[in-house]
């Protein structure tokens, strides 16, 4: 069996270098590969392209890499709530490519699925369509969106087995399984690492074929952006 388990985050990120593109799973601060992000900050890599729905928020998560001026370009869908990114974007210090969220997800899925792109109705008649081929299919106007790949994907899973089969938890899943499909090196940071056979085949959300390296990280900050509650009646 291919040995995918790594003893530490540093071993798992071996080969990651300045100038590379990284897909980072997560929606805001939820479902982030936190240990990987911290390691990238610590290593001081720079000139990075980050593909992520938000690129961190509130100065936390991937925003730590923004603060450290480690990022050259961000491909994302939303930068509200991310003052570091907004500031650098408005100052022209960083390149930002905004994608509609569904288009971002599908571009990544398309890359991982070996497709040359897809036609979507989203963005037709907007700035998103500028420079893109549009086509009418059965009376509906679509635009062509191309696949999106990266050198590395850093993925957070709830449980992974030693071959990389993954199970996610609640809304921490988001972009994680898609990004795992679309990178040259996919690194899974799992809350819990189990033996092969412990995950029921029907409970595997991401088959291990897409995963190259996995390490266990039982401790996570699991940061909350907006702590909203209701009173008990």
């Amino acid at each position: 069996m291919k040995q995918k388990v790594r003893a530490s985050v540093d071993e798992a990120l071996e080969g990651l270098a300045s100038g590379m593109s990284i897909m980072s799973g997560g929606f805001g601060l939820c479902g982030n590969a936190e240990q990987c992000i911290k390691a990238i900050a610590r290593k001081g890599l720079n000139d990075l392209t980050i593909i992520s729905n938000n690129c961190g928020n509130q100065g936390r998560g991937l925003a730590v890499l923004l603060k450290g001026r480690q990022i050259r370009k961000v491909v994302c869908s939303f930068i509200g709530g991310n003052p570091d990114l907004q500031e650098q974007y408005l100052a022209g210090e960083i390149e930002v490519e905004l994608n509609p969220q569904g288009t971002l997800a599908e571009r990544i899925r398309a890359a991982g699925s070996g497709l040359g792109g897809f036609y979507t109705p989203t963005g037709v008649g907007t700035v998103v369509a500028e420079g893109k081929e549009t086509r009418e299919i059965d009376g509906v106007r679509y635009l062509l969106e191309k696949p999106l790949r990266a050198d590395f994907a850093i993925v957070r899973a709830a449980v992974a087995d030693r071959w990389g089969n993954c199970r996610f938890y609640r809304t921490a899943r988001n972009f994680n399984p898609l990004m795992a499909m679309a990178a040259d090196v996919t690194v899974v940071e799992a809350d819990r690492l189990v033996e092969v056979g412990e995950l029921d085949p029907d409970d595997v959300h991401l088959p291990g074929i897409f995963v190259h390296r996995v390490f266990e990280a039982p401790e996570h900050d699991n940061l909350i952006e907006h702590r909203t509650t209701r009173a008990r009646p």
């Binding site: 805001g28 939820c30 609640r170 809304t171 940061l223 909350i224 952006e225 907006h226 509650t229 209701r230």
Partner: peptide, 21 residues
């Protein structure tokens, strides 16, 4: 579902506005 009671908060269950739900 609605916002959680204080003792139900789960950081990995959020809505699109990144609020705990």
């Amino acid at each position: 579902g609605p916002f959680p009671f204080e003792d139900q908060i789960d950081p990995q269950i959020i809505n699109a506005g990144k609020q705990t739900v």
